[in-house]
Structure formats: structure tokens, C-alpha cells
């Protein structure tokens, strides 16, 4: 207790005001009360880990297009995604658990997005936000537009809409949290576009044409516009 302060001003310090009178019971939360007298709970380690994972998710601060504006609104006041234990945006993929893909993915960006996704530590989850990440959305017929995020990285939750309202995004993320907490795994998805070394591509006319521009070891993504779904 800082009696020194009380002597000079007579006012309470912030700490004193928080502590209140009597025994310090700040750490006896409602949860603690629920446990009763024993400080132990008995559960499976996996269930515990899943619950922890689902309750504290770090989002990658990742903006692509229009949807990122609604994503920012979801993080900001009024919608405040952090209420659900899932709204701390991290600027580095190395610190993130979840990537929300908010916008149209075009040919030039897909390899970069794949690279960012690869940099995230396991276990990692993907929420694809908006129609563009479901199918290419309104830009599906564009010559440069990848027809959905799932062509490049596996997605756990799709939130359709153009753009989805913040409420819809929150619903999608809470659903993802539920699934993680229950230990459900994502379905295995087919990804037509992978990063591969240029030298490993099938040797056809296009590859021969580009041979003097691209090194054998360079990573490339080859787009097959006709056959993508």
C-alpha cells in the first residue's frame, strides 16, 4: 500500500481503487467459482488444446480488395470482432493463425498469397470472404482473375456476399471457432494451381517460349484458364 501517497494528497491511487477493501480477490473469477474448491479440471489434452485454439485466434492483417473494407469494419468499433476472442490483427504471417482472404485474387497476386499462406505456422485456418474468393464472383469472366481462393490455398469457411456484411463475417468466423474447438478437420480440397519450379513444368510450346526469360529453379504458377472450374 502506498501510504506515502495517502499522506500527501489523501486521494486513492488507481491500484488501491481497483483492489478495494479487504482480501484481494481479483483472481477469483466466475470460472474459478464454477470449478468449486478444487483448482483442477479433468479433460483430454486434445480437447483442451482445441478449446484454447478456438478461443484465441490471431488474424493476419491481410487486405486485398473491397471486402477488406468490410473486414476493417468488422475489426473496428460497433462490430468489434475481438469480443469473440478472434480479432487481433497481426501484420506478420508468422504470428497469425487465421487468414481471411478478402477480395479478388488475380494471376499476379496468387503466387504471393500462396507464399504468405506458406509462411503461417501450423495449425492454420482460412476464411474466404466474399464472392470473388468463392468463385471469382462478378469478375469471374476476367482474363486475369483466379476463379476462387480454393484454387490456390485450402479454405475452411466460405462467406459469400459482395461484400458480406460484418455480421456475416462474424458468423463465419464464430462457426470456424466452433469447428476448431470441436476438433473438426477441414475437408481435403483440390488445388489446381501450385507453385512449382519452372524446370518441372511439362515441356510444351509456352514453356519453350519462356525458357530464356525464366530460370529453371524459379518458382512459377501455371494457369490453365480453360479447365479451371
Amino acid at each position: 500500500m502506498s501510504s506515502h501517497n495517502q499522506d500527501t494528497t489523501g486521494a486513492q491511487t488507481t491500484q488501491e481503487a481497483r483492489m478495494g477493501e479487504g482480501v484481494d480477490d481479483r483472481f477469483n473469477s466466475k470460472l474459478r467459482e464454477a470449478f468449486g474448491s478444487s483448482p483442477f479440471i479433468l479433460t483430454k489434452f486434445d480437447s483442451f488444446m482445441n478449446w484454447v485454439r478456438g478461443s484465441s485466434m490471431f488474424m493476419l492483417q491481410f487486405g486485398i480488395a473491397c471486402c477488406s473494407i468490410e473486414m476493417m469494419h468488422t475489426y473496428a468499433v460497433k462490430h468489434d470482432l475481438d469480443r469473440f476472442g478472434s480479432g487481433v490483427p497481426r501484420a506478420s504471417p508468422r504470428q497469425a493463425d487465421v487468414i481471411i482472404v478478402p477480395g479478388t485474387i488475380v494471376s499476379k497476386f496468387a503466387p504471393r498469397m500462396k507464399r504468405v499462406y506458406d509462411q503461417m505456422p501450423e495449425p492454420k485456418f482460412v476464411v474466404s470472404m466474399g464472392s470473388c474468393t468463392c468463385s471469382g464472383g462478378p469478375f469471374q469472366e476476367g482474363y486475369n482473375v483466379v476463379k476462387g481462393a480454393e484454387e490456390v490455398i485450402p479454405c475452411d469457411i466460405h462467406v459469400p456476399g459482395c461484400p458480406p456484411r460484418p455480421e456475416a463475417l462474424i458468423y463465419g468466423i464464430v462457426k470456424l471457432q466452433e469447428r476448431i474447438a470441436k476438433g473438426e478437420t477441414s475437408p481435403v480440397t483440390v488445388k489446381p494451381y501450385e507453385l512449382e519450379e519452372f524446370g518441372d513444368l511439362e515441356d510444351d510450346e509456352l514453356v519453350q517460349h519462356l525458357a530464356d526469360q525464366i530460370d529453371e529453379e524459379d518458382l512459377v504458377m501455371r494457369y490453365n484458364w480453360a479447365e479451371s472450374p
Binding site: S107, Y143, L195, D218, R222, W225, A226
Partner: peptide, 28 residues
């Protein structure tokens, strides 16, 4: 706007939208 290795000029009249394209990651 398009990657350096893009084939064709998409707003030209003879552009084939279905041809394959290869996009490298070398700009990193």
C-alpha cells in the same frame, strides 16, 4: 498491370483468353 511473362495483349482483338499463362515469383 500484367506479369512480365504474360502472353498476348488482352484488350486487343485477337486475344485468346483460354491460353495458358505462367507467372513467376522472381520479383521477390
Amino acid at each position: 498491370l500484367l506479369p512480365e511473362t504474360w502472353q498476348g495483349h488482352p484488350l486487343g482483338l485477337n486475344y485468346d483468353q483460354e491460353q495458358h499463362q505462367v507467372v513467376p515469383l522472381t520479383e521477390h
